[in-house]
Amino acid sequence: MNPTVRLHRKLYSKTAIDAAKAAFEHLADISVVRDTDWYKVEFVDPDPDVQEVIAHEFANFALAEVVESVKK
């Protein structure tokens, strides 16, 4: 089963998710689907070395992007 993560739209901006997607796209095929209040992010065919953590790391990266943008 592919790793997935659900990011709330009121807490994670699309810009931050796009930045995370660009940073992680060499590790998996990433699809972002808008689903009511969340963005559902799915990692298809992820690199086996990072399969366990890719969703968590992606969420952390997106959170950091959001916080950085809020700081500005």
Binding site: R6, H8, L11, Y12, N60, L63, V66, V67, V70
Partner: peptide, 16 residues
């Protein structure tokens, strides 16, 4: 956001 940002180097933080 600020509190979560402090911890992201040691923990996986997911806001919901």
């Amino acid at each position: 956001y600020g509190a979560a940002y402090v911890l992201i180097d040691r923990a996986y933080v997911l806001l919901d």
